[in-house]
Amino acid sequence: MLELRNITKIYNPGEVTEMTLFENFSLSVKKGEFLSIVGSNGSGKTSMLNIICGSIPIEKGEILIGGKNIVGIPEFRRYDRIGRVYQNPAMGTCPSLTITENMALADHKGKKFGLSRGVTKSRIGEYREMLASLGLGLEDKMDIRAGALSGGQRQAMALLMTTMTPIDFLILDEHTAALDPKTAELIMELTGKIVAEKKLTAMMVTHNLRYAVEYGDRIIMMHKGGIVFDRCGEEKKQTTVQDLLGLFTEISIECGN
C-alpha cells in the first residue's frame, strides 16, 4: 500500500546547522494496517509523516502509494487520498466558521468548490446524526463557531471530518497529546472505532505507549532516523508497555542521558 524507499532527508543542507535525519530510510505499510509509531523527540516520527504528506521536501528516495511514486506531487493533491489529524486541535477546523459550515467543507472534499450553495440543506440532518454519534452534544450547537469549542470537541470534529470522505490513509500526528487524559481516552476510542468501521490504513504517532500497544496491529520505534524496533502479528500481541519502556530506557542510556 504505502512504501518509503531509500529516503534521504537533510535539514539545512549546505549550512553549519546541516543535519541528516534519514539516510536510505525504508518502510512499508500494508493495506488495512494500524501502525503505531513511537520514539523520543527528534527521532523523525513527525518528519516521516510530513514527508509522506509532502509538507517537507526530500533529497532522495521514492514514496510509493499503490505502486505509484508520489514524490513531486504537491502537498494539497496528496490529501486527495490522505486524511490527517494534527496534535493541535485548532488545525483540524476553521475557528470562524460554524460547525455546520466546517462539516459542509469536509463533506465536499475532493470535489469542485463552485458557486453552488455552501451548505447543502439536505445534508444537515446527516451532519447532525454524525455529530450526535460523538456523544459530545455538538448536534445542538451546529450554528456555533468552531472556535468556541473546547480542544477535545474540536479534535473529535477534526477526526470525524477527516474520515467523512473516502480516504486510503489516516495519518494521526500525536492527535491526543494536547488533550486531558479523559478526553484523550475518548478521542482514542473514537479513532479505533472509525478505523475499524471504515477499514482504514492508519499511521499513528504517539507518546502514549499504552495507546500504541492497545490500538496498533504493528508497532515501530524510531530512533535517530532509523527503525530500532518493529513488531507485528503474533510478536506484537506479546509486546507490552513494559517492553517498550525498557527499550526506551536502553536507548536513552546509549545516548548517555
Partner: peptide, 9 residues
C-alpha cells in the same frame, strides 16, 4: 486556517 484547506486537497 490555510493548512485546513490544504488537507481538504
Amino acid at each position: 486556517n490555510a493548512q485546513f484547506v490544504t488537507t481538504q486537497a
